[in-house]
C-alpha cells in the first residue's frame, strides 16, 4: 500500500508478516502482531532488520510498554476511519511512554484525519491504492491553528496560550 510520511509518498521497506509467515532475510524490517512478538521473541530479536509491532485498535499501549525499546516502529490499526482509538493510543505512546520511533497508521483513514494523526504523534500513514497522495500533502496545510496541546508541536497550551496577559488581574 502507498505510504505517506511528512505529506510525501515514500518507499516502504517494511514487510507486514502474518503470524504463520516465514521470516524473510535478516536485513528486511518486519512488522509482526503482538502475539507473534511474544511467541518468537528470541528469533525476532537476533535480526539485523528493524522490528515493528502491529496493534489492533482494542490493544492497549501498556501491553507493549515493557518492550518499546525493541520496536523501531509501532503500527496502529484503524479498522474503520470512524474508530478513533488510535488517536489516543498514539498520543499515549508519545506522551506517557516517551516512544520516539515511527508510529504508522494502517487500515482505513481519510486525508481529512491526517493532520489530527500527525498532531497525536503518528509519523506515517498507509493510504488506499488509487487515492491521490496530494490530498494528504494538502491536508497538512489546510489548518495552521491548533488550540490544544500537541505531542507534535511545542508542548504548551498552543493557541489557547496566546490569551496570556502580562499581568494577572485577580
Amino acid at each position: 500500500m502507498p505510504l505517506i510520511d511528512s505529506g510525501k509518498l515514500v518507499d516502504d521497506a517494511w514487510v507486514r508478516l502474518g503470524d504463520d509467515d516465514a521470516l524473510p532475510a535478516a536485513d528486511v524490517p518486519v512488522i509482526v502482531s503482538l502475539a507473534r512478538f511474544h511467541k518468537d521473541r528470541a528469533s525476532l530479536a537476533g535480526r539485523n532488520g528493524g522490528l515493528g509491532v502491529w496493534l489492533a485498535s482494542n490493544q492497549h499501549p501498556k501491553d507493549i510498554a515493557d518492550h518499546l525499546a525493541d520496536f523501531a516502529l509501532v503500527a496502529l490499526d484503524f479498522p474503520k476511519f470512524r474508530d478513533g482509538r488510535g488517536f489516543t493510543i498514539a498520543r499515549e505512546l508519545r506522551e506517557h511512554l516517551g516512544y520516539r520511533g515511527v508510529i504508522r497508521a494502517t487500515g482505513h483513514t481519510l486525508p481529512d484525519q491526517y493532520l489530527f494523526l500527525v498532531r497525536c504523534g503518528v509519523t506515517q500513514v498507509e493510504i488506499p491504492e488509487g487515492r491521490d497522495p496530494a490530498l494528504w500533502a494538502h491536508a497538512l496545510t489546510e489548518i495552521d491553528t491548533a488550540y490544544q496541546v500537541s505531542v507534535a508541536g511545542p508542548l504548551s497550551m498552543a493557541r489557547l496560550a496566546r490569551h496570556k496577559t502580562t499581568e494577572h488581574a485577580a
Binding site: E95, H96, V149, L155, S156, M157, L160, A161, R162, H163, K164, T165, T166, E167, H168, A169, A170
Partner: peptide, 21 residues
C-alpha cells in the same frame, strides 16, 4: 496523575486574557 499536568495547565492569565475579550 500520570499526565504532564504543567503542559495542560490553564494558567490564570489565560482566563484573564479571555475574560478581557
Amino acid at each position: 496523575a500520570r499526565m504532564p499536568v504543567a503542559e495542560y495547565r490553564l494558567e490564570p492569565t489565560i482566563i484573564d486574557g479571555i475574560r478581557a475579550r
